[in-house]
């Protein structure tokens, strides 16, 4: 709900007098990590995903947070019996953690998706994939954001 990056919030907190007015904002930024965890728990139904099979391609340093390229591929045969059905992407340092949910079918051929996202600040991108049989996999990567995007 806030167009303020964590960096800006912290800088503002450092400034005398601004601290009181802005405490609520910094709480907001920190709460996102918890919200991201909640979002993931909703997706997994509380089951712990295995750290495997997911490749995340992200720039190490994103100069422009308004458009950060992201590619995700999940290793899967993508047959009618064994395929990746859902892929959840969350960003734990944005005002809201959700980025997207992608749904694949055996007709997708590959569980591979590229898009561009907005990132408010340096943070972790967490990906959780679900197979048609309910197996869960996860992967995570940090991205350094030089200039935050004006995000949601």
């Amino acid at each position: 709900m806030r167009p303020l990056s964590r960096r800006h919030a912290l800088a503002a907190l450092g400034a005398t007098g601004a601290a009181l007015a802005l405490t609520g904002w910094s709480d907001g930024a920190l709460a996102t990590v918890q919200e991201a965890a909640d979002e993931i728990a909703k997706f997994t139904g509380g089951k712990a995903p295995v750290k495997a099979k997911i490749t995340i391609e992200l720039p190490e340093i994103a100069e422009n947070g308004n458009t950060v390229p992201l590619r995700i591929s999940v290793d899967s045969p993508m047959t009618a019996d064994d395929y990746i059905s859902d892929v959840l992407v969350v960003a734990d340092g944005n005002p809201r953690p959700g980025v997207a949910t992608f749904r694949f079918t055996p007709m997708s051929g590959k569980a591979d998706i590229s898009t561009r996202m907005r990132l408010a600040a340096t943070q972790n991108i967490v990906v959780v994939a679900k197979t048609n049989t309910g197996a869960l996999f996860t992967g995570q990567q940090q991205v350094t954001v030089t200039v935050g995007g004006c995000v949601g």
Binding site: N66, T67, V68, R71, M78, A91, N94, R96, G98, V99, A100, T101, F102, R103, F104, T105, P106, M107, S108, G109, K110, D112, I113, S114, T115, R116, M117, R118, L119, G149, V151, G152
Partner: peptide, 22 residues
């Protein structure tokens, strides 16, 4: 159905999606 997506505000302007189909 081949592929679908739910997008959040964290997707950049001019939403770009690259995916596969068999």
């Amino acid at each position: 159905l081949v592929f679908s997506a739910s997008l959040e505000p964290a997707i950049a302007a001019n939403p770009y999606l690259q995916f596969s189909a068999k």
